[in-house]
């Protein structure tokens, strides 16, 4: 059985890195990459937990992570399409220039 702790620690670290890049980065593409890091840390958590069944690695978690990766990819694709539209309107992808909507 694979030890669980190193995986859980890296899941936590990746989650913090993802949230950090969501909060701090100004570039919209980097924000989307932050979202992708968040997704990947959650997927890694699944895979790490699937090794904890005695005797074998649970294929159920792997099938779920496969589907989840596809769904993450589509979300990021829609996000990148929106970034292109933002660039058409504002001629920049700096998120701090997008502050006409507030309150």
């Amino acid at each position: 059985m694979v030890p669980l702790e190193p995986f859980l620690v890296s899941v936590g670290l990746m989650f913090v890195i993802g949230l950090y890049s969501l909060m701090v980065k100004r570039d919209m593409v980097r924000i989307l990459i932050g979202v992708e890091i968040l997704f990947n840390s959650a997927n890694l958590c699944f895979i790490a937990l699937s090794t904890q069944v005695p005797g074998f690695v649970d294929p159920y978690a792997h099938s779920i992570v496969m589907m989840a990766i596809v769904l993450d990819g589509t979300v990021i694709a829609v996000g990148l399409a929106m970034v292109m539209n933002v660039y058409k309107h504002y001629k920049t992808i700096d998120i701090r220039k997008l502050r006409r909507l507030k309150w």
Partner: peptide
């Protein structure tokens, strides 16, 4: 566009939390 991007980033983050809760 601006509202859509905001919605997408927040909901996608929530989706990541949801996968984590499933894990």
């Amino acid at each position: 566009i601006e509202a859509g991007f905001k919605y997408l980033v927040m909901s996608a983050t929530a989706g990541a939390f949801l996968i984590l809760s499933m894990a």
